[in-house]
Design a protein around this nucleic acid. Structure first.
Lengths: 177, 177
DNA sequence: GTTCAAAACTAACAATTGTTAGTTATAAAT
DNA sequence: ATTTATAACTAACAATTGTTAGTTTTGAAC
């Protein structure tokens, strides 16, 4: 419920009274369940960040071509988007409002995730599976598409997940020509 | 200066005192120059939104293949990103904090822009320039990559614009294989 | 050197913020 | 029926918010 409000207006613009009203209680009653506003944000963000970390670790662990691994990363993102659509808004837009320890943990996970993705692309270029484009551009292109998928998934009427996976793999890997 | 703060923490988390401190004056002094916080936000967002609108209108007006038009759209986004990097953060993340009239104007511009982009893709599919993928997936893929370019452009040490354009066109249109 | 508009300042405001203290309602277990 | 833990409530707090009022400083034009 809080994550839905955070998605709509951003963490800073949502008040404890807003969150409480969303579940028909008063703001003070929230403190019977949580320690404060920050805890809500970090629960939302770190939970989904861990999903990404675990998922990416799984992709890296399995053997396979770079293309196969990229396909699995695309599927991972789509699955998480379907299950955590609102949390992804906070992860993308409000991570900077995490406090010290949570912020450090988040940044560490994000860096590790990105580095893993980068290693897959480098593997693909080394094995001639991928065009010798600048790896950063490939990384950025795929990454940013997957990152903002949550904005589209709902707007476009909850497309069928399997069709979406196939289309995304096709467009992102083989291009649009 | 305000746009830089908005990019870092988001509109709602930035106070008038923050903005004033950024230019070494007191908050009250800001009101000698502007009517309020909202005006800052709408100036930032609507200005860059108009750049997109004018640019896209230019692309649509010129004759050319769908691929050529998509290339020009990519170049348009890169040019705007280079010149308005901070404003793009507000446009992407804080547009919902615009007030009534400004919000309506923004949404109208965004819809028109998107519709123009969609028409280019449809033209490309009709003329067999593009693969018969679902147009929405192509639109979303290119769009979201361009949309978040501002996050990468600075982090990656201000890449050379012309090289970036070529790489982006290659990756987004021809794919990574 | 006086004038005068632009733009800075101090001080304060009403409203809203996250949070705490203390109290009451709920409902399962004895 | 009494107890007891859970979770709701009211009321209030200190801090911070955007903004206004009134005053002083600045600096170019005369």
């Amino acid at each position: 419920m809080a994550s839905k409000l955070f998605k709509e207006k951003g963490y800073s613009a949502v008040t404890m009274r807003d969150i409480a009203a969303g579940i028909n209680i008063k703001a003070a009653s929230l403190y019977n369940h949580i320690s404060g506003k920050q805890e809500i944000l970090s629960a939302i963000i770190l939970n989904v960040a861990k999903e990404f970390t675990v998922g990416m670790d799984g992709v890296i662990a399995k053997k396979g071509s770079a293309i196969e691994k990229i396909e699995r990363v695309i599927e991972l993102h789509i699955d998480i988007t379907v299950n955590y659509s609102e949390a992804l808004a906070s992860l993308n837009n409000d991570w900077m409002h995490l406090q010290k320890n949570d912020l450090a943990e988040f940044i560490k996970m994000r860096e590790r995730y990105e580095e893993n993705f980068r290693s897959i692309i480098k593997q693909g270029i080394a094995s001639n599976e991928l065009k010798p484009n600048h790896p950063e551009v490939i990384l950025f292109s795929i990454f940013s598409t997957l990152r903002t998928l949550y904005l589209w998934y709902e707007k476009r009427g909850k497309l069928d997940v399997n069709i979406l996976k196939k289309d995304m793999v096709s467009v992102l890997i083989k291009g649009i020509i």
